[in-house]
Design a protein around this nucleic acid. Sequence first.
DNA 1: CTGAAAGCGCTTACAG
DNA 2: CTGAAAGCGCTTACAG
Lengths: 337, 337
Amino acid sequence: MAVTMHDVARRAGVSVKTVSNVVNDYPHIRPATRDRVMAAIAELGYQLNASARNLRRGRTGIVGLVVPTLSLPYFAELAESVIEVARARGLVVIIEQTGNSDRERELESLHSSRRTMTDGLIFSPLALGPDDEQLLPTNPPLVLLGERIFSDRVDHVTMRNTEAGQAATEYLLGLGRRRIAVIGSHEGEVVGSAALRTRGYELALQGAGLPLDPSLYGEAGPWTRAAGAESIGRMLDSGVRPDAVFALNDTLAIGAMHEILVRGLTVPGDIAVIGFDDIEEAEYSAPPLTSVHFGREEIASAALDLLEARIAGRSAEPCRHDAPFHIAERGSTMPHS
Amino acid sequence: MAVTMHDVARRAGVSVKTVSNVVNDYPHIRPATRDRVMAAIAELGYQLNASARNLRRGRTGIVGLVVPTLSLPYFAELAESVIEVARARGLVVIIEQTGNSDRERELESLHSSRRTMTDGLIFSPLALGPDDEQLLPTNPPLVLLGERIFSDRVDHVTMRNTEAGQAATEYLLGLGRRRIAVIGSHEGEVVGSAALRTRGYELALQGAGLPLDPSLYGEAGPWTRAAGAESIGRMLDSGVRPDAVFALNDTLAIGAMHEILVRGLTVPGDIAVIGFDDIEEAEYSAPPLTSVHFGREEIASAALDLLEARIAGRSAEPCRHDAPFHIAERGSTMPHS
DNA sequence: CTGAAAGCGCTTACAG
DNA sequence: CTGAAAGCGCTTACAG
C-alpha cells in the first residue's frame, strides 16, 4: 500500500538498515550512499510511518498537556511555552481541555486509553484535590502543576501561591492601602490556587495588624473577566468601598477594573488593583495592570525536565520544583504612570 | 515487557480477539465474558498500546493544528474550539506553533516527518502565500484556513475578509465618521488578512465617495497590542487626527485604544474604534470593543468536516467553506453604553 | 560498513 | 461466537 523502507531500499540498492540509518541521521554513511537513498526517497515520495517507529521504539515523542481551557489567557500562554520548550527538545504536544473544574473530565483525561499515545503528561487540575491522590496514574509519567494535589508518587511544579499572595497584599499595604478586597475567592476551599493565594492575603493583613473583614471577600467561581466584574460589582452594590483590590488572577482583575471604571471610580485613585499571572494582556489594559509574575517559560522547562527525566528512568524520588516570582508594577497601582 | 492483550487473554481464558473486541466496545460479547476480560485488565493493569493500534489501523486519531502562536488570543480561542470539536469526534489535537510569519517554520511543519503522526492537518499560514501553492503536501490531508493561499488541490475554510472589512468600515461611515484610519496594514501585501481587510476598507470608502488618504494607513507588522499602540501613536504624533479606527484585529484595536486613552483622547467620543475577530477580551476592554465576529466553533467544525471527509476518502473535489460573520456592537463605537 | 531476520502489540480475515 | 495466524512498517541485535 504505502511506500515503505523496503521499497526505498530496493530502489536505492541498499538494505533497509541503511535507509533507516539515513532517515535517522546516523553517522558513518558514505555520502554517495546517502545521496542514493535520498534520491530514492524523493522519487518514491516515501514518508516514514511514525506509528511503526513508535511501536518499535516504545516511545511516541508526544507529551500531553491537560488544562481547563485555552480560552483563558493564562493557560493559552502556558501552552505556548510548553509547546516551544517541547519543540526545542524534539517533542510535540497534544493539548486536552477539561473545562471549568469538571471532575469527570479530569479523571477521564488521566485514565483514557489516549494516555498511551503520549510519553508523559503535564496536568493542571482544577477539580481534583488531595483526596484524589490515589487516583493518579503514574504510568506513563505524570507531572502535576500547582498545589491542588501533592503526592509523593508524582513530580510537581509548584508556584508558592501563598507567598506570592502575601507579597501582592503587602505591596498594596506598602502603598498605604488598608481596605483591601480579595476577588475570586472560593469559600470553603482549602487547596488550590484560590485558597492558597487568599491565605497569603490573610497572612499579610494579619502581619500588618489589620482585621479580616468578611465583606471584603469577593467570591467568583470561574476566574473569568465576567466573574471578576460581577464579584466587585456585588461588593460595591452592597455599599462596601475598598481602597484596593487583590484579584486572584489577571482575568478577574481586568473584569473588576472594567466594572470599577464603569461605575465612575478611578484606578488607582479610588481603588488600586493588582492581579496575578502577568498575562500579556496586563500590559495593555487601561490602566496597565500590576501583577504577580511567574515565568511561564521556566514553569514549562521545569515540567519538561521532570517529565523527560522520568521518561528516561533517570529520576528516582519524585521531585518538586518551586517557580520563583516577582511583582510587575504598572499603572493600576501607580498614580503617575 | 509491557502487559499485552495476550497476557490479558491468557488470564481471562479467552482469545486475544475477544480481548480486542471488549477493548473496542464491539457488540455480541456475553456479559460474563466481558466481565472476565475487564477483571483481567484491571488485575494486570493492562493499557492498550496506541502505537500498535495505530500501525495496524493506519490511522492515529490525531489531527494537527498549525498556528502562529497561542499567545495571540485569536489563535488560542480558535485552538480551544478545534480541540473541543475534535474531542466530540473522538480525535485529539497536536498543536504546533510557527511564530510570527516564519516561512521556514511553516514549511517545516508541513513537511516534517511529524506529519505522519497525524491523520490530517489544519494549517493557518502567515508567511506562505500563493507562490507556495506547489509546496503544499496533500498527504496526509490538509485544510487551509484563511485566504493567503488558494489551491485547487486542497480544502479551504475562508472568512470573507474583504466583505467583512468593508462591512466594518461601512458601519463606521454609518455612524457619521469620515476620517477613518486603518491600523495593522501591511504595505505592499496583496494576499492575506491584512491586504484583504484593507481592500474592504478601501471599497467602503470609495463606495461613500471618500478619498483614500495615505496618512490614515497605520502599518503594524505583528498584530499585537504593542504594535497597535505604536501604530496609532505614530499617526497621532505626525499630527494626523482620525475620527475612527478600523483595526485589522482586536489585539491591535485594544493596543490602539489604550494609546488613544493614554493621550487624553476619548473613545468613542474623539475616535470610534472597531476591531476584528471578536475575541473574548473585547467584551471586557475599557470601553468594550465593537468587533467583526466570525463563529470560531463554526470554523472549527467546518475544518474538521473537510478533514474527516478527506481522511475517509469521501470527498472528491477539494471544497471551500465560507464562514459567515456579523458585527458585534459595543461601547467603543456607541456613545451611550 | 551491509544483509537477513526477529519482533514491537495490535487488528482482522480466515477457519471452525 | 472463538482460536490460530498473518501482517501493519519500523528498529536493531546478530552474523558476516
